[in-house]
Design a protein around this nucleic acid. Structure first.
Lengths: 87, 87
DNA sequence: TTGACAGGCAAGTGGGCACTTGCCTATCAT
DNA sequence: ATGATAGGCAAGTGCCCACTTGCCTGTCAA
């Protein structure tokens, strides 16, 4: 999961899914280019999504030829639990 | 900061500082070897500490020939703020 | 059914990063 | 002063990872 968060493009993908959940691959590609100037190929984004899915940060739902991507922030809880803020 | 968290050894260093704050470089090297089986050179650990310090996760205090390392978890707040858990 | 659209698979490449190696500086005790 | 201790600097190496490239599969509309 930590490796998944290490890449700026992947973090921007999480931002984009925070803004609009349930996007398809092409939707994400378009919005990453428009809003964030990320000019990567579709395959690159797809591989990023695979990593994010492997980290449990993105959940997937298939419907016909579409594949929707949903954000799951629950793995992030490990961070706050592991290194608690000492007030 | 995210890149700093990406490395397992660096995360273990944070664990070690959580357990005992204010360790020196040699202290950390010894405890990483004893408790976690991390057999890295002093220089490797030193470079890791530089990265953690650059990320703001570790603060440093010099005293004579000793350099003490203190954990600072406040940068981690960015994560919870950036991708809030939707309950 | 055939073309367009959404996505997948896999090999290759280049750059960054973790780690080592070798040597140097600074502080302290004896 | 001199050896030991704590740490720093910098060049070199090997490997992982992000990205590309090329081609293939599956789904839907006309």
């Amino acid at each position: 999961m930590f490796k998944a968060l290490a890449d700026p493009t992947r973090r921007t993908i999480l931002d984009e899914l925070t803004d609009r959940d349930g996007q398809t691959l092409f939707e994400l590609c378009a919005r990453l280019l428009m809003k964030h100037g990320i000019d990567s190929t579709r395959q690159a984004i797809s591989q990023h999504l695979d990593v994010l899915e492997g980290a449990g940060l993105v959940r997937v739902k298939r419907d016909g030829r579409y594949k929707f991507h949903y954000l799951d922030t629950s793995p992030l809880k490990e961070i706050a639990d592991r290194w608690p803020s000492r007030d």
